[in-house]
Design a protein around this nucleic acid. Sequence first.
RNA 1: CGGGGCGUAGCGCAGUCCGGUUUAGCGCGCCUGCUUUGGGAGCAGGAGGUCGGUGGUUCAAAUCCACUCGCCCCGACCA
Length: 474
Amino acid sequence: MKGLTKRSDDFAGWYTDVILKAELADYAPTRGCMVIRPYGFGLWENMVVQLDRMIKETGHQNAYFPLLVPESFFQQESEHVEGFSPECAVVTHGGGKKLEENLMVRPTSETVICSMYAKWIQSYRDLPVLINQWANVFRWELRPRLFLRTTEFLWQEGHTAHATEAEAEDETLKMLDVYRVFAEEYMAIPVIPGPKTESEKFPGALRTYTIEGMMGDGKALQMGTSHNLGQNFSKAFNINFQTREGLREFVWQTSWGMSTRTVGAIVLVHGDDKGLVMPPRLAPYQSVIIPIWKDEAERAAVLPCVDQASKSLQGVRCKVDDREQYGLGWKFSEWEVKGVPLRVEIGPKDAASRQAVVVRRDTGAKQAIPLDRLGDEVRTLLGTIQREMFERAAAFREQQTRRVDEYETLKRVAAEEGGFIHAHWCGSAACEATIKEETKNTIRCLPLHRERESGRCVSCGAPSDGRVIFAQAY
RNA sequence: CGGGGCGUAGCGCAGUCCGGUUUAGCGCGCCUGCUUUGGGAGCAGGAGGUCGGUGGUUCAAAUCCACUCGCCCCGACCA
């Protein structure tokens, strides 16, 4: 692709170029906002279809709550207000008049939803409440980046209410695992699930769990979060219920979200110098057929083969690129930057031998496949690509991960190598802050299934019983 | 919000320092026609601009000055 910044030259510039040239998105006239273009939205829609299915399969129902939240509602949970106020947009006027009460544009929907839950929940028989909504939210970010951090973004936010603390914790972890499976099996991105530290948790939550992925430059990206809200919101919004025993209790809540940011993760993890590489299970087009001919005779020979190929690819999201105004090189480059997993070329030579030339986007590997086996082979190849993309990402993460025991080493690795650093940490916010200050690395999470290992905090030397993950984050 | 950079045709840029043969150019793209097609095709013709905005200096401003708006990159805050 001409004009595409090399990934190794300037990773950030490359990222922006890929998104623009692949036509995933474009800058909007509104500051900090972007337009998700049809190709990018097609990817998001495929993600939505799968994630939505998984959310429903775990017993949740979709609903929709309003974009605007009365300021007074928003202010009911103190930690929540403190965390979100700086990044909220506020509506002060409506219908040409100053409003009696300001309306917050939701940065997340806990408060409106809780106000409704207070109304809907009376008895233990009303529990659990398992609701999800697909929505847009606004966070006034100071430094926007396409997909990764935009003022408005799309996401899914689940909000549940339970009778017991244990049930809420189960729900929190269950949805975290839904995210893990989605990231690994659909996005082909290995992630590390685990709780956030106190300083990194969601404002108002008891505990926040995250799935952390490693991007192609070794930096970490939080790809989804699941919060155990405890009774913080139910107390603030008075969401109580009568137990079987006749007692009044506050519900235990969770919330969890995954956003369009993850589209950025797909670019950052799988992309290369030619552009995007789409994981087959989410790709808007899984294959593109490019017919080749230079006169009517060849066209007549090739077209039936294209039809046959196209028919044999039933069930594969396939596009036939028969645009005549573009040359072959142009088409190849275009579908490469867009990351279509498989390119199927059919020209006169192929037509003569009843075959197609199939080229993998991820490896560039090229092979001739007889037309009568094309459907099966393509389906198999798509599976192989999906699996190998995950394996490559996992191998890369492995290669960019260090175990470090000395603070000096941590500093050096953080400065010179980047990537994930597994190190001991005593659990104090002070050490966490010092390390962040001095190395730009933050604790991404305490891996859920980390091995018990006694050691000493890299910062203060106090005892620790397991390693945490440090990394520079997006 | 701090530091840096950039706003000139749809996109990418030159011209700005040192104001004046500049009628504001170039490449790509776009439109018309013909020829082309196994890795970004060729020829011919054509359309397209309040030089980000406002104000100032001057006989004369894309060019100098002031203010302003917007965007990008790097930090602090965040999904």
